[in-house]
């Protein structure tokens, strides 16, 4: 059996896509642990999946309720929602400029 490995280059790409920044210590630890976990994942290849097996999203499929009508309902405490934001202006959630201009 040949194992897939996460390369240092791929690892760095994933860090960027995940919007993370890592210390050197974290980088070394996470890189090694990911490859160890991948070794476990690779054991799944040993299983012969019978033809026609349908992927199971839930195990037991939920006998859930039907989606409600797509009708707008106001949340009763909007000020509490805005108050949770680290920064707000005039009742709106504020963020830094997307491109970097102040």
């Amino acid at each position: 059996m040949s194992l897939q490995h996460i390369t240092p280059e791929l690892f760095e790409k994933l860090v960027g896509l995940a919007a993370l920044e890592l210390t050197e210590e974290e980088r070394a630890y996470l890189f090694e642990e990911m490859n160890h976990q991948l070794a476990s994942v690779e054991s799944l290849r040993q299983i012969q999946i019978p033809e026609g097996t349908t992927p199971s999203l839930y195990g037991l499929h939920p006998e859930g309720i039907s989606p409600r009508a797509d009708e707008w309902k106001a949340f009763t405490k909007p000020k509490q929602i805005v108050a949770l934001a680290p920064e707000s202006e005039d009742g709106m959630i504020a963020v830094p400029d997307v491109k970097g201009a102040k």
Binding site: V15, A19, L30, Q37
Partner: peptide, 25 residues
């Protein structure tokens, strides 16, 4: 200086190693 940097620094400082491991994996 921009929104992307806000995301990266917030997540880098806010999450511990086990959370980062799960995100990356």
């Amino acid at each position: 200086s921009n929104l992307s940097e806000l995301y990266r620094l917030t997540r880098a400082e806010g999450f511990g190693p086990q959370v980062k491991l799960r995100i990356l994996m």
